[in-house]
């Protein structure tokens, strides 16, 4: 078991008002599973992904990640786990605009104490895996959306994470590129048995995953996957 949530609640405070985003979310995810989190916008699926990615802390409830208690962990430990166990893929890519594709991919390794050269060597290997070895010295602004997302995937993979979290990874891409990106992610899950959790509002896309979790008004429901749709 890689993730175990028990009774997680999270409220968003804006001034006086307190808006309850997640209510009593309980969830177990096994190693190597692929999950889609779906729901209408504002339902709290990104909030859940932030909690799973250790980017924000829940208000209450229990959260164990690969067996470790995340609620009592220090922020340094959370940073280390993000660095070594989790790879993020964002809708808007979130590449550092001032760094080349290579340095963007190498960045997580530098936070692990790798020397610049060693980190770049690993980064190059992973850029090759996503087919971008000829775009190494380009800045993100010189790359297409699909290429940017591949750089982001290479960055997520460079640290050999056990979990990949993707927040609407195809939301900014055209349908053909979206399919390519989704194929890359699913192939990773299948071939390297990396646990994959993807937030999406695309129901058709959600059907390609092992599990489908729907969030409605802060509550989570497991939904059956329409198996016959699954291609490849």
């Amino acid at each position: 078991m890689i993730i175990s949530l028990d009774g997680i609640t999270y409220s968003h405070r804006t001034g006086e008002q307190e808006l309850c985003v997640l209510k009593d979310v309980t969830l177990d995810i096994m190693r190597g599973q692929s999950c889609a989190i779906v729901g209408s916008s504002g339902s709290g699926k990104s909030t859940l992904l932030n909690i799973l990615g250790l980017l924000s802390r829940p208000d209450s409830g229990e959260f164990h990640f690969v067996g470790y208690d995340m609620c009592s962990a220090s922020s340094d430990v959370l940073a280390s786990i993000r660095n070594q166990e989790i790879g993020f893929v964002f809708q808007s890519f979130n590449l550092l605009s001032r760094l080349t594709a290579l340095d963007n991919v190498a960045l997580p390794l530098s936070y692990r104490g790798f020397s610049r050269n060693k980190a770049r060597q690993h980064a190059l290997d992973h850029l090759k895996q996503v087919g971008l070895e000829d775009r190494v010295t380009h800045l993100p602004s010189e790359l297409s959306g699909g290429q940017c997302q591949r750089v982001a995937i290479a960055r997520a993979l460079v640290g050999n994470p056990s979990l990949i979290l993707a927040d609407e990874p195809t939301g900014n891409l055209d349908s053909q590129t979206a399919t390519e990106i989704l194929d890359i992610l699913l192939a990773l899950n299948r071939e390297q048995s990396v646990t994959l959790i993807v937030v999406t509002h695309d129901i058709a896309m959600a059907n390609h995953f092992d599990r489908k979790l729907e969030i409605r008004q802060g509550k989570m429901h497991e939904v059956a996957v329409a198996r016959d749709d699954k291609h490849v």
């Binding site: 340094d76 993000r82 660095n83």
Partner: peptide, 16 residues
Amino acid sequence: KREIGIRMALGARQRD
């Protein structure tokens, strides 16, 4: 700010 967030997501500690 966003860069700081990205760096944190990639494993930068507060002290980094």
